[in-house]
Amino acid sequence: MSLINAPSPHTSRHTDTGAVMRQVVYATLPGLAALVWQFGLGSLLNVLWAVLVALVCEALFLRARGKPVAFYLKDWSAVVTAVLLGLALPPTAPWWLTLIGVGFAIVVAKQLYGGLGMNPFNPAMIGYVLLLISFPVAMTQWIAPGDAPAPADSLALFLGQAPADAFTGATPLDTFRTWAGDAEALAGRDILAGELAGPGWEAVNLAFLLGGLYLLARRIITWQIPVAFLAGLALPALIAHQVDAARFAGPLFHLFSGGAMLGAFFIATDPVSAATSRLGRFIYALLIGLLIWVIRTFGGYPDAVAFAVLLLNLSAPFIDYYTQPRAYGHRKANKGANP
């Protein structure tokens, strides 16, 4: 008889990385549905196309790096990156925009760093920021809520056959930025008159929140990052709003506008580029939330999830050095990079 010779433990929880990643993809479905409902088929087309591009890029580069292609594709990480980027892109994005963004995310931000687990930055956000800086007009146009284009129009937009401006309008974040400080003007804007935030956007964010709660329930993610993220965003908003309601939007508006929920539950929780210890993750996400509020309020861009996440990706190793947990039998935690 030939006996298996393996180190302990000899049993495992029977999960694998692919399963974890699939759970993340499933959890985005409510959000995707809400996007399609509010803004037309564009987001779905983006996501599907992004997945296809990602898989092809991943396969090509795995092959070029001499890695077993099928084995690595099974970890579903490329799919997750593609889905997240596809969700973040405007529903009016033409195919080539997605191609460039996803291609850059997979090839440069992930594979060139050594593949899954080795990338210091969130690949989807790298792709997003690349596009945002290179094609600012295409990236900041968004369909006005409740004005979803017909499927045929969405397809035409996707293929680059129709002019985007025919369908686009200002987002609630844009609008607030434009009229901030003028209470009367703000009060007159329909787009800011949702139950929680702007109409349409609150639905999308609620859907992503739902998906995020599913991830929490399945223990795919832990509570530290989403809670700290949202707290970091909401607390300064609350304080500032108390001081001057006309100049500063309220916490609910911030939480349910733009990419807040997508960022809190799906983007910032990417474990590869986040901090590792529990306390570290809390600080990491708290600072992301704070930075989003700062950029939204004082910066040049209407939304800031991508920038904030990338800046904190940079700081994650540093945060890790100072947030080692206190190990059993030690009176205090070790701090710093080196002994």
């Binding site: 694998d16 974890v20 970890d75 474990p271 986040a274 590792t276 529990r278």
Partner: peptide, 25 residues
């Protein structure tokens, strides 16, 4: 008790840190 599946890349998911009884990383 099957043969262990091949080792995949660490995605730093932190599941290990959640279960470590010695509170290590």
């Amino acid at each position: 008790l099957p043969e262990p599946p091949p080792e995949q890349a660490c995605i730093r998911c932190g599941a290990c840190a959640e279960v470590c009884p010695a509170n290590l990383l």
